Each structure stands twice: as C-alpha cells, then as structure tokens.
Computed example of a mutant assay.
Amino acid sequence: MFDNLSVLLPRLLSGLPYTLAAAAGGIALTIVLSFAAGLGLLAPSRTVRGITRVYVEGFRGTSEVVQLFWIYFVVPILVGLELLPLTAGILVLGLNHGAYGAEIVRGAVQSVPRAQLEGAIALNFTPAQRMWRVVLPQAVVEMLPSFNNLFIQLLKSTAILFFIEVPEIFKQGEILRPAWGKDIGLIYLVELVLYLLLAIVITGVMRWLEKLAARRIGRTAPSRERALAKVSGGGV
C-alpha cells in the first residue's frame, strides 16, 4: 500500500501552502467578523442588531458551497470585479465561520458577571473602557475553547475550494486519483493525516492562548479545565 508514498507525498504536499493560506486568511477574517458581529448583536441600536442578525442567520442558514459559488461566480458579474479563486475561498471561509463566531462572542460577553460591570461603572469607566478593560479580557477566556473548534472546522472546510480549482491538498489528491487509482486508499490516508496534523497545531496554539489569557486575568486554569474538574468531582 505504501510502495508509491515517496511519489505521491510530494504531489499532495504541493497543495499544503494553499491550504495553509486559505486557513490562515479565513481564520483572520473570522476573528474580525466574529467580534464585529458579536458586539453588533449586543449593540444598543436596533438597526445595528437587525443588520447583524441578518448576516449571522444568512450565512449560518445557507450552504457553504453555494456561498462559494455565489461569491466566485455571481459577485464578479454584479460588481464587475473578478476574484482570484483563493481570495474568493478566504472570503467565504471568513464570512461563513464569522457568523458562527459571532454567537460565540455574544455568549461569552454576556457570561461576564454583572457585578464586574457594576464595579466598572462605579469606577466611572466609559462604555468603551468597560468593554476593553473589563468585559473582553474575561470573555476571551470563555470563547477560546469554542474558537478552537471553529478554527478546526474552518480548516476542514478548506477542501471545498476544490470546486473552484484552488490547488489545495484535496484538489491535489483528486488530480492524482485518475492515474493512481490503485493507490486511492493511500492518497486519502495521507490527506487525512495532513488535516489531522494541522488540526493538532491549531489546538496546541489555542490551548497555549487559553492559558495565557487565563493568567492575564488572574485565573489559574481556563474555565474549560475547571468545568471538567467539576464533572469529575474535583471541584475548583
């Protein structure tokens, strides 16, 4: 089964830079949109909340593949601007997962104890100061585990860029499949391992960020670990 690994592996690895670029760009856009939309859902203005809700529900409630086709094929016709395949892919990954991330941000912000806000008000903090100095530092600790899952899902979604001819990992495998059909099991196994390794890297980085964020606000362990301790009977 592994006789042709030395031949197939370099071909599959040639798609790795495209997968990394799509994932990194998608994650960066997801973070920006998640915070913008998440805070938009909590805005005092009903208009802002309404517009944000349309975005969130629109991208959560429709097919990611159809979104990809719409942005790559239809948007250039409407605005007269042709998008590169990778650029279109990053836009779809960011817009789609940013809609899910918005709910993560909203929930984390709302989970900050009311007493913290009251204390900030007593100290005459402005609304902006309350958000940036009191609410978000605590909310980030709560949202990081969920963002870890979201980013891994985004990584796996990079495979849909195959449909618009981005030569990422999955596309390279499909290019090889007709000529190397007898090694189809090996091709897909290598792809699975590559996605798994990338997911492990994302998890490692996110867990490091969890610990760093927790230490910055004086917590000895992320909330996820404390929750597991409660379930196992260890308390806090």
Rank of each mutant, 00 (worst) to 15 (best):
L5N: 05
S6N: 13
S6G: 13
L9D: 04
L12E: 01
G15C: 06
G15F: 02
L16R: 07
P17V: 09
P17L: 08
A22K: 02
G25R: 07
I31H: 08
V32K: 11
S34P: 07
F35T: 02
A37P: 10
G40E: 02
G40I: 04
L41M: 10
L42H: 05
P44Q: 06
P44N: 06
S45L: 13
G50S: 13
I51L: 15
V54R: 06
G58N: 07
F59T: 05
R60K: 15
E64P: 15
V65E: 05
V66W: 10
L68F: 07
I71V: 15
F73D: 03
F73E: 04
V75I: 15
P85D: 00
P85I: 00
L86T: 03
L86Q: 01
A88P: 02
L93G: 01
N96D: 08
Y100E: 00
G101M: 03
A102R: 01
I104Y: 09
V105S: 01
A108F: 04
V109L: 06
V112Q: 03
P113Y: 08
P113G: 06
Q116H: 14
G119I: 06
I121L: 15
N124A: 14
N124M: 12
T126M: 10
P127H: 08
A128M: 15
R130Q: 12
W132R: 15
V135M: 12
A139I: 03
L150K: 04
F151D: 01
F151P: 01
L155V: 03
S157G: 08
T158G: 04
L161S: 00
F162A: 05
F163G: 00
I164N: 00
V166Q: 00
E168F: 06
E168M: 05
I169D: 01
I169C: 00
F170P: 00
K171I: 00
K171A: 07
E174A: 15
E174S: 15
I175Y: 07
I175D: 02
W180Y: 14
K182C: 12
D183F: 09
I184Q: 14
I184R: 15
I184Y: 13
G185P: 09
L186K: 01
V190R: 01
E191C: 15
L194M: 13
A199T: 02
I200L: 14
T203E: 09
G204M: 05
G204N: 07
W208D: 08
W208G: 09
W208H: 12
E210T: 08
E210W: 05
R215W: 12
R216I: 09
R216L: 13
A221M: 13
P222W: 05
S223Q: 14
R224C: 12
R226C: 10
A229G: 13
V231Y: 11
S232R: 14
G234A: 14
G234M: 14
V236M: 15
